[in-house]
Design a protein around this nucleic acid. Structure first.
Length: 273
DNA sequence: CGGGTTACCTGACGGC
DNA sequence: TGCCGTCAGGTAACCC
């Protein structure tokens, strides 16, 4: 489900819900592992702690408490929701119970997500966060020059390259396709052969599409929901994603579809070179 | 090392 | 109705 706009939408929703810094009275794990084992000490370490902030790095959520930070990746199907008493669902893997009586539920049918603990001040050392590329919305960190350096001499196609979280974070299959369409770049283009002006355009397109999607509350495909339960609506603005065989919004040509780097890819062979 | 494929897991959907 | 194949927003372990 979640690329940067969806994770940011969840983050801002949770930050609003938790703005009064509620104190955890119980962390209830319903299973011992997701994609990776959940530390056995997680519940004990977080008990009695206030949530002082909810941050985002790449596609990760960080629930900060004085004693430790709860790290969460939503994988493909992870969701957080306010779960009143009686609202228990299949694939709920973790409940955060607060002293004020509220409860947050983490639900993740495919279990590609991650829950882990980070020691205070050690976020950059965590294996999942170390080595991540720049935030695409940070205009100083993610520039055409930075992307050009990562592309130089590379034969990997540009679409899988911009989905590589070591190059730039937060871009997944949907927004990679949308950004490449906006920039007029064919997804299968060798990274090392995309000109510098076109890489500048791609950086701008990535930033623009992510910002527009955040403003729209993310894209709701299947069961993505904001933390408040609302749907995002950016999916109504897809120009290429999931539109193979349909007409290009710009020129009317039939959009092409293929598998690239193991992921479904859609593009306009007339508008994208 | 770079580049490509596969596995992880469940659910939804289309075809028969 | 139900069975089966295919596909899904991500990541990482493999292979050559």
């Amino acid at each position: 489900m979640p690329e940067l706009p969806e994770v940011e939408t969840v983050r801002s929703g949770l930050a609003l819900l938790l703005a009064d810094r509620p104190i955890l009275c119980r962390v209830q794990l319903m299973r011992a592992d997701l994609r990776a084992p959940i530390p056995a000490s997680l519940a004990r370490r977080l008990r009695g702690q206030p949530i002082i902030a909810v941050r985002r790095r790449a596609k990760y959520l960080l629930f900060e408490t004085p004693a430790a930070t709860l790290l969460c990746h939503l994988g493909m199907t992870g969701t957080w929701r306010l779960a009143p008493s009686g609202d228990e669902r299949i694939h709920d893997h973790c409940y955060l119970h607060f002293f004020d009586g509220r409860r947050l539920a983490y639900r993740d049918p495919r279990r590609f997500g991650l829950l882990d603990l980070i020691e205070p001040g050690r976020a950059e050392e965590h294996p999942a966060l170390a080595g991540l590329g720049p935030e695409p919305l940070d205009a100083r960190a993610f520039t055409g020059a930075v992307l050009a350096e990562r592309c130089a001499g590379r034969k990997v196609a540009i679409k899988p390259l911009i989905m590589d979280q070591r190059v730039v974070v937060g871009v997944g299959n949907i927004y990679a396709a949308e950004a490449l369409f906006r920039a007029g770049i064919r997804p299968s283009c060798f990274s090392g052969r995309v000109s510098r002006p076109r890489l500048d355009a791609l950086v701008a397109a990535i930033r623009a599409v992510l910002l527009e999607a955040i403003a729209a509350g993310g894209s709701t495909i299947s069961d993505f929901r904001q933390a408040g339960g609302d749907s995002g609506y950016f999916q109504t603005r897809f120009q290429v994603y999931d539109r193979a065989g349909q007409p290009c919004v710009r020129c009317g040509a039939k959009l092409r579809g293929a598998v690239l780097g193991g992921r479904s890819t859609v593009w306009c062979s007339r508008c994208q070179r």
